[in-house]
Nucleic acid binder design. Structure first.
Lengths: 144, 144
DNA sequence: ATATATCAAGATATATTTATCCTTTATATG
DNA sequence: CATATAAAGGATAAATATATCTTGATATAT
């Protein structure tokens, strides 16, 4: 439904947002998000290339959000890791036939559209505003 | 979002439904759905084990739907191939904390719930009723 | 400058998904 | 019973997703 990698990215962005505009290192992010450090490093690279975060090497470096949490939607994150593939033409057809998908693929595309809409309508700031017990992710391990 | 395998299964079920209650062989289904024959055979096995279709070996054998198209929902098909994993406890937490997910995972779970709801509300019969140009899938290659 | 902190990039490893092929088993029909 | 048909099952292969590790590049502080 939503890949592991994408879910990791969302965890990281939420965590960065909570500290915004302070930078966080991969190590710190890994602790907070419980994502394996090495893999998270790759995910952060993708988010950097995608323009969502900026990176800074060296002492006191790390990653930080390029925009404010209120200006980042969940879809902004998701689409960097796994562009939700809208169905524009039937996979069966030789050519395409515009909006004239068969009922099955019309439904499947509507489903994706619905998910996109939901993801677009939720900003990262909104997630922070709803946070429980002062924690943006529900881990008990966050060390403040 | 929805795996290739699941999408193949939906194609096959829709095709079977269109001919219901006639059985169709893997070969025939493969032609109609454009799914690789060998792989489709495996998918059909899963659908059989899942109880959605019955299989019959030998001459005039093949697969047919166990229930009527109007009694099969898209979710019935999807859940055999990839059980949509609802998020009941936070992936981060050591234990679980009931309905008290963090905002991020609450949203992600809601998303899955929404998809489930849509898939449940669409029967295969409904897809057939909407079919274009008398074809349940939009392939130009169906030989009637 | 030098030492330290930190990300970037590439190679490699493992798991899962997708796909193919071959042999075996079951069934219908002459 | 013999034969043809068709699914079941197992082995293998290829592609992709997930994960680790090492080395190199770059920024900071002293």
């Amino acid at each position: 439904m939503i890949s592991q990698t994408t879910e990791y990215a969302l965890r990281a962005i939420v965590t960065l947002a909570d500290k915004h505009p302070q930078p966080m290192t991969t190590e710190q992010l890994s602790e907070h998000t419980q994502v394996p450090t090495g893999y998270l490093a790759k995910v952060m690279q993708q988010l950097t290339k995608g323009g969502l975060v900026s990176s800074q090497r060296g002492l006191h470096g790390g990653f930080k959000l390029v925009s404010k949490p209120k200006d980042i939607t969940m879809l902004d994150v998701v689409r960097i890791l796994e562009p939700l593939p809208r169905i524009n033409s039937c996979p069966l057809e030789i050519g395409d036939h515009g909006t004239d998908l068969c009922p099955l693929h019309r439904r499947l595309d509507n489903l994706i559209a619905m998910v996109e809409k939901q993801l677009t309508s939720t900003t990262i700031a909104r997630l922070l505003a709803e946070k429980n017990a002062n924690k943006p992710l529900c881990s008990g391990r966050i060390k403040d």
